[in-house]
């Protein structure tokens, strides 16, 4: 476990008595009474079965929807932020979707370049160097000019990660990053996320705050420092891995099952 587990940093994400709704059905509340604080540089895993609201909660945390109730602050600023002067705060957070959610009319390289070009008003040539560096870092260079549809899901997910990293966020939210990956890719992701959490040289060596959703807990042993469950509309903080193993919560016991080791 990294040294980041022992750090007590100022909170970057703060939620108080928050309720979140489903993205596709704003009338359906998926989580209630969430009080949660994430310190800078912390590495969290939020686990829960399918339909527990992990993705909806993550989207809300990323600012795609407003909380139904309660308060949510990102770096001290009330969320959601859509534009204006506070947009810079929003850009300190990145979101990686489950399927990558790349824009199909752009190539992989153009997808990566888009946030950088849009927010810094750059031409494709001006963004090229940075894009190439990130393509090399993530092993996507051979697929740079390919459309997303021509690339396997494993690599599309990785392209989604690279795109979210383009603006060098301080907080990175990842929706079920290991889902559907083969063991080789899953290993790459775990290793890369560990490097990000410890402070990757490419991103200035600053430890990145990571929040990951997952269907199982066992894959994240020795990886994340903090664990929580999403169960029956409740957000249950379990603590560190030792506390997870000791937890008596029935869902925690289920999610520790060896069959879910790859999830």
């Amino acid at each position: 476990m990294s040294a980041a587990c022992d750090r007590t940093n100022e909170p970057v994400i703060e939620m108080r008595a928050l309720s979140a709704a489903a993205m596709k059905n704003p009338g359906r509340v998926v989580l209630e009474e969430v009080t949660w604080s994430v310190g800078a540089g912390e590495y969290w895993v939020l686990a829960g079965p399918q339909g527990s609201g992990k993705s909806d909660f993550l989207m809300m945390t990323a600012g795609l929807a407003a909380p139904v109730d309660g308060t949510y602050r990102l770096f001290g600023e009330p969320m959601p932020i859509f534009e204006g002067e506070r947009l810079a705060t929003r850009l300190r957070l990145g979101l990686v979707f489950d399927g990558g959610q790349l824009l199909n009319h752009l190539s992989i390289a153009q997808n990566l370049a888009l946030p950088l070009r849009y927010h810094h008003n750059l031409t494709a040539a001006e963004a090229g160097e940075r894009v190439q560096a990130l393509l090399d870092l993530t092993g996507l260079a051979p697929w740079a000019d390919a459309p997303p549809g021509a690339v396997a899901r494993n690599w599309r997910k990785r392209a989604g990660l690279a795109r979210a990293l383009m603006l060098q966020p301080e907080v990175l939210l990842l929706d079920d990053p290991l889902a559907g990956l083969d063991p080789w890719h899953a290993h790459w992701w775990r290793d890369f996320l560990r490097q990000l959490a410890a402070g990757h040289r490419f991103f200035g060596g600053r430890p990145m705050t990571l929040v990951v959703t997952a269907e199982g807990l066992r894959s994240w042993k020795g990886q994340a420092c903090h664990f929580a469950l999403l169960d029956k509309k409740r957000f249950v903080v379990l603590g560190n891995w030792t506390e997870v193993e000791r937890a008596s919560h029935p869902l925690a016991r289920e999610l520790l099952a060896p069959e879910l080791a790859g999830a």
């Binding site: 850009l91 946030p115 849009y118």
Partner: peptide, 18 residues
């Protein structure tokens, strides 16, 4: 419509692109 169904609009919003 296809972009919407494939979640590309949400991807743009996540990148703070209107």
């Amino acid at each position: 419509g296809t972009a919407r169904a494939m979640g590309e609009v949400e991807a743009l919003e996540a990148l703070a692109i209107d």
